[in-house]
Design a protein around this nucleic acid. Structure first.
Length: 688
RNA sequence: GCACGCGUAGCUCAGUUGGAUAGAGCGUUUGACUUCGAAUCAAAAGGUCGCAGGUUCGAGCCCUGCCGCGUGCACCA
C-alpha cells in the first residue's frame, strides 16, 4: 500500500460518513498536508465544505468543528491510523501509526526510476506530446531549450503517471525561415549544393553547420533591407524568398533539394544539442510530407463539407475561406474571422496545422510513410516522415504505429495562443465527439534576456530597449544565447569543480559527471519557473550550482548514496529485516515507534512522509500539466534530506533499532529523490 | 480598442484550485568542517500580497472598477 492508496481509502470513508450522517454527497474530498508535522500527517478540510452544503440544503448553520467531531467518531480507526484530532477551525487531522507504515512503505519501495528507462505503458490510451519544433534553419537558443525541456519533462511525468506517450517534433522544412537561409546560400554566398556540403564538412567541431546558419540567417535579414538594419525591405529581394518558397512547396527541383540538405543538417545539429540534455523523439513529422501526401487537401474537403469554414463572396476577405470567430470582436483594423485559405488559393500555416492536428488525433483518414532518422545508443529510434511508400526499414526495430493520440499536447509558446485556439476549434468542429479538450495547448512564456545578459553578450541596446524590463530574443537578429554555448559553459564550470574535488576519477568519468551536473543545472533552472512566468535570462542565476538548483538536489542524492556505499552490507540487511518484522511483531514495533516518537522521531518521520508524496505530486503535475510543481517538490525533498543528514549520524548510530529506522528513512528518501530527479530528466552521478 | 497573462520580501520566484502564523532561493548579518562529503546546515533581519470596493465563517487566490507592465489580435509562420 502506498500513501495515495491510504489517502483514497480515507477519502472514501469520509464520503460514506457524510452521506450517513448528513445525507449529503461530497464529490471531491481534498486532502492537505498540515503546515507542521506536529499537526498530523494528513489534514481534511471536509467539514468546511459540509458546513456549506448543510447551510445550502437546510438553511441551518452548523459549526465546522462540530461536524469534524462527528466525522471523527465515524471514522473507525484503521490499522494504519493511530489517532485523529479536530484542530483549528474544523480540520480533521490524521496521525498515522508510524512504525506500522514505515514497515509498509519499506516493503513496497520500488527501485528508483532510472533516468534512461522511464518506459511508456502501452496498455493505456496514447497521449501525444509535440515539442521542440524548432525551425530547421539555425542553432537552438535557450528559448527553444525551455520548450524542449518543458515538453520532455512533461513526457516523463505522463509516463511516470502510467501513460503511454508518443513524442513528436514538428519540422517546418518548407517554411519561410528555411527559405531565408536558402536565400542566404544562393544569393549572398552564391553557393551550390556541393559547395555547401564541402563547407559543412570543413567546419570546426565547435562551430558546426547550425552555427554557420545562425550567422547567415542574420545576414539575410540585413540583405533584405539593403544592409540597413532600420531600413525598409527591398521588394525585389523579398521576391527571391517568395520564389524559393514556391520551389520548396512544389518539391522535386534543385532548390528544394538544396533546402532539404540545409534543413536536414540543421535538424541533425538540433537533435545533437537535445541529446546532450537527454531529450529524444519518437517521430519527426515534416511539413513537406503534409504537403506532398495531400493532408491539407483532405482536411480542406472535410472542413468544407462540415461547414467549419466558409467562402467569403464579398467584403475585405472576398475569395478567402475563413473560419468564423465570433468570440473575438473585430474592429476596423483587426478582423475577427481567421483566414484559412487565401484568395490566391494557397493555404495558411493554421490550415496546415489543422490537418496535422487531425492526423495526430487519428481522424484524418490518411497516413505518412516513415523511415528511420536516428538510432539512439539504447536502440531507441527516432523516425521521420517520408513520401516514399516502401522506404528503408529496420528489421531489428519494428516501426511503431504513429498518430491516433487520445489527447494531444502541443508545447508552443503562449504568443501562439490565438492560432492554437483556432486549431482546437477547427478540429472540434470537424469531429464533434472529440471536443476541444482533446487538443491541449501547453503554453509557456518566452525566455528573454536580462539587461545584464545583453551586456555580457556585448549586445548594444537602443534607448527604447533599455526602458524595457527584458529584451526579447530574436533569431532573425541573431539575438540570443545559443544552447550549446550555454551547455559548454556549464560543463566547463562543473568540470573545474569535479577536478578539484575528485582528482582520482578518470577523464571520462569527470567529463560525464560534468555533463550530468550541467544538465541538472540547466534543466532545473528552466523548470523551476511556472509556465506562465517570463524568464529574464541571467547568466549568474543560470550558471549557479548552489541554492535552489539542480546540482543542489543531485548533491543531496549523492550524499545519500555515499552513506550506502560506506555502510557495511550486514548492517543494511539487519536493518531491513528488523523493519520488516515490525509489521507483525508487537515488541519490535513498539521499539520502532519509540525511535519515531518525540521531536527527533518526528523529524525523521516527516522526511518519510514527504518522500512518500512523490506519486501524488506526479499525478498532480500530469493533471495540471505543470512540471514546475515537480521541480519544487524535488528541491523540498532534497532540502529535507540535507536537514536529516545533518541531524543524524547513521553509520555511527549505536542503538540498532534507531539505526534501522534511520537507514530505512534514508533509503526511502534517496530512492524517491532519485526517481523525482529522473522524472525531471536529471541523473544522479556517483560522485560530484 | 478587444482578448489573454502578470503585479507577493532589496532582487528572482512559489503559494497544494477559498483554509491553520503568506513561504523558498539569491543578496545582507552571524554561527557550524578532527564527523556518513561545507556544491552543506543553523540563526537573524526583511511583507499595506499594485490600489479601491464586494462576495463569506474565512480572500494572495473568486467578482467589479481602476493603475502599471507584457503578449496577441496578418491573405507571416
Amino acid at each position: 500500500m502506498t500513501l495515495i492508496d491510504l489517502q483514497n481509502r480515507i477519502k472514501q470513508r469520509l464520503q460514506e460518513a457524510a452521506l450517513e450522517l448528513f445525507g449529503l454527497s461530497v464529490e471531491q474530498v481534498s486532502a492537505e498536508t498540515p503546515p507542521k508535522p506536529e499537526l498530523g500527517d494528513l489534514a481534511f478540510p471536509v467539514s468546511f465544505e459540509l458546513a456549506k452544503l448543510i447551510k445550502q440544503s437546510t438553511g441551518t448553520r452548523v459549526a465546522p468543528r462540530a461536524i469534524a467531531e462527528k466525522l471523527k467518531e465515524k471514522l473507525a480507526a484503521d490499522e494504519e491510523i493511530s489517532r485523529i484530532e479536530v484542530a483549528g477551525a474544523g480540520y480533521l487531522n490524521i496521525f498515522f501509526d508510524r512504525a506500522q507504515l514505515l514497515s509498509v512503505f519499506a516493503a513496497v519501495l520500488p527501485l528508483a526510476i532510472d533516468h534512461a528507462t522511464i518506459e511508456s505503458v502501452s496498455s493505456r490510451p496514447k497521449q501525444m506530446v509535440e515539442h521542440t519544433s524548432i525551425n530547421p534553419n539555425k542553432a537552438a537558443h535557450i528559448g527553444h531549450v525551455r520548450n524542449a525541456v518543458l515538453g520532455d519533462t512533461f513526457v516523463r511525468i505522463l509516463k511516470a503517471a502510467g501513460n503511454e506517450v508518443e513524442v513528436q517534433n514538428y519540422i517546418d522544412n518548407t517554411g519561410v525561415q528555411v527559405a531565408d537561409v536558402v536565400v542566404g546560400f544562393k544569393h549572398i554566398e552564391r553557393m551550390t549544393l556541393d559547395e555547401i556540403k564541402n563547407l559543412d564538412g570543413s567546419l570546426p567541431e565547435d562551430r558546426p553547420f547550425d552555427y554557420y546558419c545562425w550567422d547567415l540567417y542574420t545576414k539575410v535579414g540585413l540583405f533584405y533591407r539593403d544592409d540597413d538594419p532600420n531600413g525598409q525591405p527591398n521588394p525585389e529581394k523579398l521576391k527571391l524568398r517568395t520564389d524559393i518558397l514556391h520551389a520548396l512547396e512544389q518539391g522535386n527541383n534543385p532548390t528544394a533539394e538544396l533546402a532539404d540538405y540545409v534543413a536536414t543538417r540543421n535538424v541533425e545539429c538540433i537533435l545533437d544539442t537535445m541529446e546532450r540534455l537527454g531529450i529524444r523523439y519518437d517521430l519527426l513529422a515534416r511539413e513537406s510530407e503534409i504537403l506532398h501526401l495531400h493532408f491539407w487537401d483532405r482536411a480542406f474537403q472535410l472542413m468544407k463539407s462540415a461547414g467549419v469554414i466558409r467562402l467569403e463572396t464579398e467584403g475585405k476577405n472576398k475569395g478567402c475561406w475563413v473560419m468564423p470567430f465570433e468570440s473575438h470582436t473585430g474592429t476596423d483594423e483587426h478582423e475577427a474571422d481567421k483566414i484559412i485559405v487565401r484568395s490566391n488559393g494557397t493555404v495558411t500555416y493554421t490550415g496546415k496545422d489543422i490537418a496535422y492536428q487531425l492526423w495526430k488525433l487519428g481522424h484524418l483518414g490518411l497516413d505518412f510513410n516513415y523511415k528511420p532518422f536516428r538510432k539512439y545508443p539504447n536502440a531507441q529510434v527516432a523516425w521521420v516522415t517520408t513520401t516514399e511508400p516502401n522506404s528503408e526499414t529496420l528489421p531489428e526495430v519494428p516501426r511503431p504505429n504513429f498518430g491516433g493520440g487520445v489527447t494531444v499536447y502541443n508545447v508552443i509558446d503562449s504568443r501562439q495562443s490565438y492560432p492554437q485556439e483556432i486549431v482546437a476549434r477547427g478540429v472540434a468542429g470537424l469531429v464533434p465527439e472529440l471536443g476541444q479538450d482533446a487538443s491541449v495547448h501547453l503554453a509557456y512564456e518566452m525566455v528573454a534576456l536580462s539587461a545584464g545578459a545583453c551586456a555580457e553578450l556585448g549586445i548594444e541596446l537602443s534607448n527604447e530597449d533599455r526602458a524595457k524590463p527584458y529584451i526579447e530574443m530574436s533569431g532573425r537578429k541573431g539575438l540570443g544565447v545559443k544552447a550549446d554555448d550555454l551547455i559548454d559553459r556549464l560543463e566547463a564550470d562543473a568540470l573545474r569543480e569535479v577536478e578539484a574535488r575528485h582528482p582520482e576519477l578518470t577523464a571520462e568519468e569527470k567529463a560525464s559527471t560534468a555533463n550530468e551536473i550541467a544538465v541538472g543545472a540547466l534543466r532545473y533552472f528552466l523548470l523551476k519557473f511556472t509556465r506562465n512566468s517570463v524568464i529574464a535570462f541571467d547568466f549568474k542565476e543560470a550558471l549557479s550550482f548552489e541554492g535552489e538548483t539542480g546540482p543542489y538536489c543531485q548533491y543531496a542524492a549523492v550524499r545519500a548514496s555515499s552513506i550506502f556505499r560506506k555502510l557495511d552490507r550486514e548492517s543494511h540487511v539487519v536493518a531491513e529485516k528488523l523493519i520488516q518484522r515490525a509489521a507483525g511483531d508487537a515488541e519490535i514495533r513498539k521499539q520502532v515507534a519509540q525511535a519515531l516518537d518525540g521531536e527527533a522521531g518526528t523529524e525523521i518521520w516527516s522526511l518519510v512522509m514527504l518522500a512518500e508524496r512523490f506519486d501524488e505530486v506526479v499525478a498532480q503535475c500530469a493533471a495540471a500539466a505543470e512540471p514546475a510543481n515537480l521541480a519544487k517538490y524535488t528541491f523540498n525533498l532534497a532540502r529535507a534530506f540535507n536537514f536529516f543528514y545533518h541531524r543524524h549520524r547513521i553509520i555511527a548510530e549505536e542503538d540498532l533499532t534507531k539505526k534501522a529506522v534511520l537507514i530505512t528513512a534514508a533509503d526511502i528518501a534517496r530512492r524517491q529523490l532519485t526517481s523525482a530527479l529522473a522524472t525531471l530528466g536529471i541523473n544522479v552521478p556517483e560522485r560530484m
